[in-house]
Simulated scan of single mutants.
Amino acid sequence: MTVFGLGGTIAMTASEGGGVVPALSADQLVAAVPGLADSGITVEVQDFRRVPGASLTFDDLEELIEAIRRCLADGVDGVVVTQGTDTIEETAYLLDLSLGRSEPVVVTGAMRNPTLAGADGPANLLAAVQVAASIPARDLGVLVVFADEIHAASRVRKTHSTSGFTFQSPTGGPLGYVVEGRPRIVNRPEARITLPAAGRWRTVEVGLVRVLAGGRWESSSGKATIGSA
C-alpha cells in the first residue's frame, strides 16, 4: 500500500501569520492515524507535493499518474492519494480516466485541519487505506472515500464548503460504506471509461460567448452594460 501526500487541509498546520499552511509530510499524516499501525496493512509513503488543492497543476497530476502507474506495476496492492478538497473530484475523475488497473486507487482529504477540534483527516485516511487494501474495492475504478462513504470518481461531487459530509453522489449514490473498519460495497458501476495515453494532453482553443439579458458586453473594457445605451 502506498500513500501519496499532495498537501491540502489534511496536511495543514498553523503558520506564523496566524493562518494554516500545508506543511505536514505524508509520513507525519500516516503516523498520526490511530489504529493504522495495528491494522496489519503495510503502508509506504511518498511526500509528493505540499500545496493547497486549488494550486495543483496538470503537470502535477501527470506526474502523479505516472508515479501511481509505476507503483502498481511494481506490485503495490492499492494506492491512497491525500489532497485538498477543492479539487478532489477533478483529480479523482482524471485518475479514473487515466488508470485502467484493477487495483484500488482512493482519493481522500479533510474538511477540518489538524489544529481544529474534530479534525476529520485521520479518520478519512484510515478509511481510505482500509478500502484501498480490500479485495471488494478492486475493479471499481478510482474512488473517493470521505466520512466512511465510498464514492465512484465518476459520480462524486463536493456539495458544501464546510460540512464533513460534503462529498455526495447525486446520480447513483455511494458505492458503499466503511463499517467498523470493513468496506461494504452495495452498489457497483456498470461501465468504466478510460482514455488512451497518447494525445491525452493537448492544447485546444475554446470559444467563449457572453450572453446577458437586456444589455451588452464591451470586450475592450471587459464591462457589462445593463439596459439601453
Rank of each mutant, 00 (worst) to 15 (best):
G8T: 02
T9C: 11
T9E: 12
A11H: 04
M12L: 06
A14N: 08
A14K: 10
V21I: 14
P22G: 12
D27P: 01
P34W: 13
G35H: 12
T42E: 14
V45L: 05
Q46L: 08
Q46W: 03
D47Y: 03
V51P: 00
P52Y: 11
F58K: 05
D59A: 15
A67M: 11
I68W: 08
R70Q: 12
R70T: 11
C71S: 09
L72F: 04
L72M: 06
G75R: 04
V79M: 08
Q83N: 09
Q83E: 15
T85P: 05
D86Q: 04
I88L: 14
I88Q: 05
E89F: 02
T91L: 09
L94S: 07
D96C: 05
S98H: 03
E103A: 13
E103F: 02
V105Q: 07
V106M: 13
V107R: 06
N113F: 00
T115D: 15
T115H: 06
L116K: 07
A117D: 14
G118D: 13
G118L: 14
G118N: 15
N124A: 14
V131N: 07
A132Y: 01
I135K: 01
E149A: 12
E149F: 02
H151Q: 13
S154C: 09
R157T: 14
K158W: 02
T159Q: 04
T159M: 10
T159C: 06
S163I: 02
T166V: 15
S169M: 13
T171C: 02
G172R: 12
G173Y: 10
Y177D: 15
E180V: 13
G181R: 08
R182D: 15
P183V: 01
P183T: 00
P183D: 10
I185A: 10
P189M: 11
A191M: 12
I193M: 12
L195R: 10
P196E: 03
A197E: 12
A198W: 00
R200P: 01
W201A: 10
R202Q: 14
T203Q: 09
G207D: 13
L208F: 04
A229V: 08
